[in-house]
Amino acid sequence: MSGTAGAPDATADPAGFRPRIPAAQWNDWRWHMRKRINTTDKARRWIRLTPEEEKAIAGSAGKYRWSVTPYYASLMDPDDPSCPVRLQAVPAPAELTEFPGSDVDPVGDMYYRRTNRVVHKYPDRVILLVTEACPVYCRHCTRKFHTTDLSGTYFRDDEGGSFEEDLRYIAEHPEIRDVLLTGGDPLSYQDGKLEELVSGLRAIPSVEIIRIGSRFPVLLPQRITDDLCAMLRRYHPVWLNTHFNHPKEITAESAAAVDRLLRHGIPVGNQTVLLRGINDDVATMRTLMTELLRIRVRPYYLYHCDNVTGVSHFMTSVEKGWEIMEGLQGHITGFAVPQYVLTTMIGKIPLARPYVTPTDEGLLLRNYRGEELVVDAAAYPLTDPVPEADAP
């Protein structure tokens, strides 16, 4: 982007009322963080708020944090409240309604927390809740409780405290070979502060892989600087998983951010959440997955939206998820098809419909067109044969 920004072109800003931002500011991620939109007055510079949105913004005050970077706001349709970017970023009345079965922590982060920040749910890996800060507080966040305004954090102590206890726990559990930095968004930290943590992890011999979960490539790609990437490269292997939910989020800026990560040897994967009214149709999801491959991002998970308090209105049925997976499998290249999962207290559970069913005649196979074929059990046995010496 050159010249001035804020409304990148005439089609992105048909009303022509958005602020024009000098390129030096627009390309500086710190400027966007300082200028985040968190009031109705600021929002009106970017979109025409509906009465419902204004009511939800007022109702969420003191309950759920709300902020949007100018970059992400520039992707919103200023006149369409059903814009898929706008729905992810602007409070809606439904998030103030409690739905049946909702929970502030359905995935068990607090249950599995072992230190102030370490959540040890799986045997060989942990997550590290680095911060509760985010550039944009996504309305569908699984950790919405962790980013609330009123005592809604998982932290036992202040997040600005020492990481010594957390690093010691990881070092004292050599079975932990994989650490995922999450939050909040760990890239909210300045490079120096982030490097302190990453270097501390790399100094632990049993830690093989460091992963970063960050939505900055989507919400504020200017954050992905050469300096940041060069710092992370010193601590390889480092992986980054991000979170594109709609093709509209794939821009020249986000593609450039991904390219910078890849050129520094940092693989990029994507975890999409299935969201009602945003991406819950086959055409949108196919476009998203193929566009991710175009910018060299590997689709990883399609999450079924968790029944989180304040988030439930985004949930679809599992049947809708199956419909979308059926519309992906076989219709686009195999490594563009994510794994459809539900995150629970007992881990991530694959939700895909089976393509193989054991029968008396053999294995009943079904392809992406719904065509069926039975293969003989003698050719493709379901179980290993019992050795003669062990036979009864």
Results as ranks from 00 to 15, higher is better:
residue 272 T to Y: 02
residue 49 L to V: 05
residue 311 V to D: 03
residue 341 V to I: 14
residue 207 V to L: 04
residue 293 L to T: 00
residue 344 T to Y: 06
residue 330 G to E: 06
residue 227 D to V: 10
residue 34 R to D: 15
residue 43 A to H: 09
residue 352 A to F: 10
residue 205 P to N: 14
residue 297 V to S: 12
residue 32 H to R: 02
residue 195 E to N: 01
residue 154 Y to R: 07
residue 347 G to K: 06
residue 312 S to R: 13
residue 139 R to H: 04
residue 132 E to Q: 11
residue 207 V to E: 02
residue 80 D to Q: 09
residue 36 R to T: 14
residue 3 G to R: 09
residue 213 G to M: 02
residue 32 H to T: 03
residue 94 A to E: 14
residue 148 T to I: 01
residue 109 D to G: 00
residue 247 P to M: 00
residue 31 W to F: 06
residue 322 W to P: 02
residue 292 L to A: 07
residue 284 T to W: 05
residue 291 E to C: 07
residue 315 M to N: 12
residue 145 F to E: 09
residue 107 V to K: 02
residue 318 V to T: 08
residue 247 P to N: 01
residue 90 V to I: 15
residue 71 Y to N: 15
residue 134 C to H: 05
residue 362 G to N: 11
residue 51 P to G: 15
residue 287 T to N: 14
residue 235 Y to W: 12
residue 313 H to P: 10
residue 264 H to R: 15
residue 228 L to Q: 11
residue 179 V to P: 08
residue 354 P to C: 04
residue 25 Q to K: 07
residue 345 M to G: 12
residue 168 R to K: 11
residue 130 V to G: 08
residue 179 V to R: 05
residue 31 W to I: 08
residue 152 G to T: 10
residue 292 L to M: 12
residue 368 Y to A: 13
residue 218 V to M: 00
residue 348 K to S: 05
residue 259 D to L: 13
residue 84 P to W: 00
residue 285 M to H: 05
residue 139 R to Q: 04
residue 96 L to T: 11
residue 28 D to I: 03
residue 240 L to F: 06
residue 26 W to K: 11
residue 287 T to M: 11
residue 250 I to Q: 12
residue 129 L to G: 02
residue 82 S to L: 12
residue 19 P to L: 00
residue 356 V to E: 00
